[in-house]
Amino acid sequence: MDLVKRLYHRFASLVHELAKFGSIGAVAFVLDTAVYNLFLLGLDWGPLTSKVIATTISSTFAYVGNRYWTFRHREQSGLGREYFLFFLLNGIALLFGLLVIGFAKYTLHLHDGLSLNIANILGVGLGTLFRYWSYKKWVFLEATEPIPVELPDSGIRQDR
């Protein structure tokens, strides 16, 4: 039992960060899949166009969630820099999805909604692995000094 406690304390911050990243990712995945199917099946747009639109919308949600919840304890290196890198890296992750969907449709000639959704899920999985690694490495950097949990007391009393 002592070993489990030591392991937990050693990896607690990573476990919590992964849980938050997974929660944001799960909501973004549902959003991505819903928008993808809306455009693909509901509006009869092509699978690649539908994927680009769905990823743009779900990535915007994921940026806000990851910046202000998952990685809020990490240094904030400027909204412009983070936003640019976040969407650049999401563009690279989008290529994983487009390649898998394109392979399914244009190489394997799978045109049905189920096959294209399975391809989408595989692409999202590959992109998620890349995104988690790249966000930690380049977008949401380690804090160079501890970030306080609460704002410092200003000495002014607010209870009048």
Rank of each mutant, 00 (worst) to 15 (best):
L141I: 10
F140Q: 04
F61S: 07
S154K: 03
L95D: 00
R6I: 12
I147Y: 03
T144Q: 14
V30Y: 04
A34S: 13
G125N: 06
L141M: 12
V4L: 14
E142H: 12
R10S: 12
F86P: 02
K105T: 07
T107V: 13
S134H: 02
F140G: 06
L31N: 09
V52K: 07
S77E: 12
I92M: 08
L129E: 01
A12I: 10
R157E: 09
V100S: 01
F21H: 04
F11E: 03
G127S: 00
F96P: 00
R67D: 04
F29W: 10
G80A: 14
P152Y: 06
G127N: 04
R157V: 12
R10M: 11
L126H: 04
P152R: 06
L99E: 10
N66K: 05
G22W: 01
P152T: 09
I101L: 00
W133A: 11
G46M: 05
P152H: 00
G80D: 10
K20V: 09
D153I: 01
R10N: 11
I24H: 02
L3A: 13
K105N: 09
G97P: 04
P47R: 02
P152G: 03
G127Y: 04
K137R: 15
G123L: 00
F61P: 06
T144Y: 10
D153Q: 04
L110W: 06
I101Q: 01
A34W: 05
A12G: 07
A34C: 12
E75P: 10
P148I: 02
V35R: 02
T33G: 07
S115H: 09
P146L: 09
T128Q: 06
G97L: 03
M1V: 15
Y63E: 05
L126P: 00
G123D: 05
A143E: 09
S59N: 10
S23G: 14
V139R: 01
G46V: 11
I101S: 01
